[in-house]
Design a binder for these strands. Structure first.
Lengths: 320, 320
DNA sequence: CTTGACCCTGAAATCGATTTCATTTAGGCT
DNA sequence: AGCCTAAATGAAATCGATTTCAGGGTCAAG
């Protein structure tokens, strides 16, 4: 309720001086004390809206993710939060539900709220960032890379390779792949890793695509794809699933068909959520979700502090 | 980049008129068209910071939760989001990590960013909401009730009763309880339900507290408490766990001791996350997490629209 | 003693919208 | 035609901070 003018009046100084006290600009000790006492007495908190309007930038960074119910993204969010808080930024989390329209709406909010910057795991490959970049708002793409902006990702192809190789080593031969939507770089990369390994292995050369399914990165999609694969005349004896939630769905399908791993082999790109509950027969490619968030926040904050190196593309490793 | 003045100049009208066009105040059709055309041409988006400063309130509501990695809260968040979006509000999500200090910081942000209202699942029973209520910002407590403000909760005592009764019916007798921190109303309520049932049953009257553990609502806490219970001279033959994450931990402890349910009985207050992965022997009290969020958002928005009924306390049922 | 450099300080402009208030214009009624 | 009411419009004030600019004071060097 109290404004800078109230404080100024009570302390017997000008509003400008009050502002300076709170912004670390030299003010005589005596006045400074008076101002602080007055502020204390009125329990004054500076109005961030006014400050943001004047400075044309707030101390809030937006983290936009496609699925808040996916533990991978919440872990990532934790990483972002830790680093941001430590540097004095608040993080607001926006959930797009993989919906390009919702995403666009949140991007508008970011612009018109003058937020300092954005960390974005994009729902759409075609996001329009021109509004943001034109206004000099730094953007860091995380998990899913985007053209022209800094990115922090994992090595999708290597992960797909590692997972598939593990299944081969376990003796499986007809290894299927359930990946994400067609055209998504993460989905395609992981499937590429799978394809690479199978091409160089004795396995089914002929028609790999027979064993490839594109789903939606969600539990139900993974379930449906697995059921579909099991209904093939010659069903796979193992499956590489390209994200954690689809792996949960696929696993459920296997259990329903009494094919609980390791009866059918399974590898998941990304930890199964609450893994303590899941069968031991599943190979998991562990992803550094939290680190991803930390690295992205780190990078964003460096940009906010004026760093103008050329575009960075950080790629973190995974651990089988 | 474009401001209302730019649009006004291009359309040949005053800024006031531009504002009116965007706020649904009558403006002649001809001018209105010119303004819209100009706005389109300049790709004008009104600056929310300025608008918020002038109106002393934004269209953003804050949702403050204690643990973003708990699927219960993310489901709740989805409910809030759906309702809020439908009414034109954006939701920003703040994670306090059960830390009262972080919570206080976010509450400050809410005030000084002039956010419209708050939905709060409080980390501390002693939150100070005076700043908020003094400024007329509506607050709705969700999941964890608070004095003096609207609340939306589940019936904790009934849930505890239902869960315990189910275990009794399954033939278990030495039923332990792992609940949340001492003094937390949710934790105490659930334990009360458990106690009630055991008092009226043939079961161990003597020293109920021997089988009661207080943990921290997290996976590791549940695990430790379960291990502790299993080390008793006369370990329990079943356990009621008062939240989903502790249930995951307790379950892991049981599995590690080769006591996978139903060898030892187990009931969980709240769905086990990604339940498809978990043993069938666990009784689950299903919680309407999403509904909780929807109801809270509904209530908050009614308050924002000027509803001034006396304090509401909505209690949703659960389903065994 | 004068001059210049530097530090504090306050008055006033500024950020970009909304809103009050006064004025103009148009339309309806007698 | 004349008068009154209502609608449309623009000028200017406002929200609460930051920041520019200019003035006043202190101190050291010449």
């Amino acid at each position: 309720m109290a404004t800078i003018y109230d404080v100024a009046a009570l302390a017997g100084v000008s509003p400008a001086t009050v502002s300076r006290v709170f912004n670390g600009i030299t003010v005589s000790a005596e006045r400074s004390d008076r101002v602080r006492a007055a502020a204390e007495q009125l329990s004054f908190t500076p109005n961030r809206t006014a400050r943001t309007l004047r400075k044309q930038s707030s101390e809030v960074i937006a983290l936009i993710i496609p699925d808040i119910e996916n533990p991978f993204f919440t872990a990532l969010a934790r990483g972002v939060e830790d680093v941001a808080q430590a540097s004095g930024y608040s993080v607001v989390l926006c959930n797009t539900d993989e919906d390009a329209e919702k995403e666009a709406r949140y991007l508008d909010v970011v612009v018109s709220e003058n937020m300092a910057g954005i960390i974005l795991a994009a729902a759409s490959d075609l996001v329009d960032l021109t509004d943001l970049t034109r206004r000099g708002r730094p953007v860091v793409a995380v998990d899913r890379s985007l053209p022209d902006v800094d990115t922090v990702t994992v090595d999708n192809v290597a992960g797909g390779r590692d997972a598939t190789r593990a299944l081969v080593e376990q003796g499986f031969r007809r290894i299927a792949c359930i990946t994400g939507p067609r055209g998504r770089t993460t989905a395609e990369g992981r499937a590429d890793g799978w394809r690479e390994v199978l091409m160089t292995t004795s396995a089914v050369h002929a028609d790999l695509d027979r064993y490839l399914r594109h789903a939606d990165f969600r539990v139900e999609g993974g379930h449906a794809a697995m059921v579909d694969l099991l209904n093939l005349p010659e069903p796979p004896d193992a499956v590489f699933v390209a994200n954690n939630l689809m792996a949960v769905g696929a696993l459920r399908a296997l259990i329903e068909h009494d094919l609980t791993p390791p009866l059918v082999g399974m590898a998941s790109f990304g930890d199964l959520p609450f893994a303590t509950l899941s069968p031991r027969g599943v190979t998991v490619i562990r992803l550094p979700a939290r680190l991803l968030g930390e690295a992205a926040a780190q990078l964003l904050i460096e940009r906010l502090h004026g760093d103008d190196r050329p575009r960075q593309a950080i790629r973190l490793g995974n651990s089988a």
